[in-house]
Design a protein around this nucleic acid. Sequence first.
DNA 1: GTCTCGTGCTGAAAGGTTTTAGCACTGGCG
DNA 2: CGCCAGTGCTAAAACCTTTCAGCACGAGAC
Lengths: 372, 372
Amino acid sequence: MSVSRWVRVTTGVANGRPTAYGLLSGPHEGVDVTKRPTLADVAARAGLSKTAVSLVLNDRPGSRLSADAVARIHEAARELNYRPNAAARSLRLGRTGTVGFISDEVTITRFASAMIRGLLDIADEQETGVLIAETGNHPKQLAKALEFMVDRQVDGLVFGALTARLLELPTLPESMRAVTVNCVSPTVPTAVLPSEEQAGYAVTRQLLDAGHGAGLAIIGNAPVAQSDPHISVTIDRRFNGIHRALLEAGVTPVAVEEFEIWEPWHGYDATKRVLESGAPVTGLICLNDRVAFGAQQALTERGLRVPDDVSIASFDDDEIASYMRPALTTARLPYEEMGRQAMELLLRPEDSPGEHLVEMPLQVRESIRPLG
Amino acid sequence: MSVSRWVRVTTGVANGRPTAYGLLSGPHEGVDVTKRPTLADVAARAGLSKTAVSLVLNDRPGSRLSADAVARIHEAARELNYRPNAAARSLRLGRTGTVGFISDEVTITRFASAMIRGLLDIADEQETGVLIAETGNHPKQLAKALEFMVDRQVDGLVFGALTARLLELPTLPESMRAVTVNCVSPTVPTAVLPSEEQAGYAVTRQLLDAGHGAGLAIIGNAPVAQSDPHISVTIDRRFNGIHRALLEAGVTPVAVEEFEIWEPWHGYDATKRVLESGAPVTGLICLNDRVAFGAQQALTERGLRVPDDVSIASFDDDEIASYMRPALTTARLPYEEMGRQAMELLLRPEDSPGEHLVEMPLQVRESIRPLG
DNA sequence: GTCTCGTGCTGAAAGGTTTTAGCACTGGCG
DNA sequence: CGCCAGTGCTAAAACCTTTCAGCACGAGAC
């Protein structure tokens, strides 16, 4: 059916609420035009019972109605443009065909919005709606959002976070399905996370393979973030991957710049320091793209060119990575894929507890030059 | 109440659906622990009728219950941790306390996610939930989303778009409240748009006031976008503002670069062309920040510095505008404020048809140098 | 003593769906 | 003929809320 065929026909108000919906004057006569048709209307028009209509329209197996009856019901439903009333169905069934997405600020900031894309994608495939709430990291807001969702009897909950951290969630109703994306919580067994160890390893190898073992610098070492799961549970793994690659190759970086917040200006400052120190740097592992962006600004100011003089590899595949000249080689944070995974896990009938890692694919672009 | 107090107590399943919810073993005895309490449970505990409970809990004016009765009901509700069943209420009331947000790709791309922030902000204040759907510009998806929302009996609809264009929407049920944000539709009378004329004027004046009248270039003239409302209904106004300022000052640009798609590489190419043409350019009006970013890359490659040699002003206040060195002076696209406005208009009881313009504030940063 | 009115409260219907239990009929078998 | 099984269909309950209509009772007016 097409929604566009619904129009209000009178402006009458009954019981303080408008009820006057109906079909555009169309080919079918004898239809009550004052309100949305119900099962009873379809039943009347088909000359059968509500039970029969419900059975047929939901084609329940085992209900043995004559082919004629089935045809009449379908015809009547089509003619009346019947759509079931979601509230009534929810009331009866105890489920709503709706899931909730609660995050700190995934939806409302630009960084991880691809996560929503993934979520909505799968939800849509499964004819499921998504209710959204953001907490801005306030426990009060979280409690409120949760209460709202539970009251609406959502069929499941997805918890998301901007940075992959440990979340403090209240205990959920035990029958409530839930998945965390880009975060973990002791109260939710199923979690979807980016495969950071692999990414750390891949990024580092990319520079090592290009021959930068002798002049490698790390821009953005973050010991605090590494050790505090409330800041991140995955940064640690990213560094583990980096170190595994270095260890394997027997390489020690010529410089390691430490700072916890990864914004362009920090990358700029840190890289400036490295350059001023005179360390013989030929390759930069920047801990994210914004840091890499700042690093490049510092290099440019020094008259150094990427990748001719210094190569850069990085993490995230932020918008900025593709705007840079040269475009940045970086390990992509797979937000969309994580969103898809989460929704699939949530909607799947069986449980799938545990950590589900999603690969961070290396986007190889032009910021690395092979040496000699 | 706190949601965390709900836990499943048995794993029993009735009618094929789990119903076993209850209070954590707490201070109150004699409460049925097997399911969410209903009005009837509260009534029983308070020794009154369902009617009385409903009346009191919704504190309907004109219902004259004794102070004692009111107290008993509140107490019982609190003890049982009663929360009304949203589906039942919707069924009865015909409204849901939920609005729908349908857009092409506002939620799922990074550009306009602040719009959602504004929407959710206000929705939250008004205890309203938000159902989200994205159409990716497919009419099929749009119809599906609309149908879904109408079926769920949302109390209103917000239509959003990434670029401020004319939308083709099916006729809505006439009683359905609706607002468009950053887009317009003949079927929806209330629209929220950015105040582009004012922004065009302000940006241009900023360069003129700094003395760049003699060396002004426009990077990103877009005649097609200007004249096709399906691409944009506001770009036109942006140019009108620019031209009004120029006309007023009696200024003719020394160069006008035309291209319809405003990505960094286009800005880069266009600026390169201008520089190669030898036009005596001292100030660039870039039609968005990404174009400005590309322009700066071209300038830098030519050994020209911003703002020392060339000044830049731009539109949008994209992420990138604040990352650039120097940070970019730009007229902010007020997505968040537009979102707030839209939700306020939607939730307001009276209608407010017409166009609601939201100011685009000029973010004055360091990319403009006053000429001697 | 009857009527009227105000007070405090309640029964029952309505909203639209799903599902259980079961009715009425036919045909086949013993 | 009696019984059983199968076929085609339906009545009614249940889900939980809101609200209309109205009951019972006591006080005051006439």
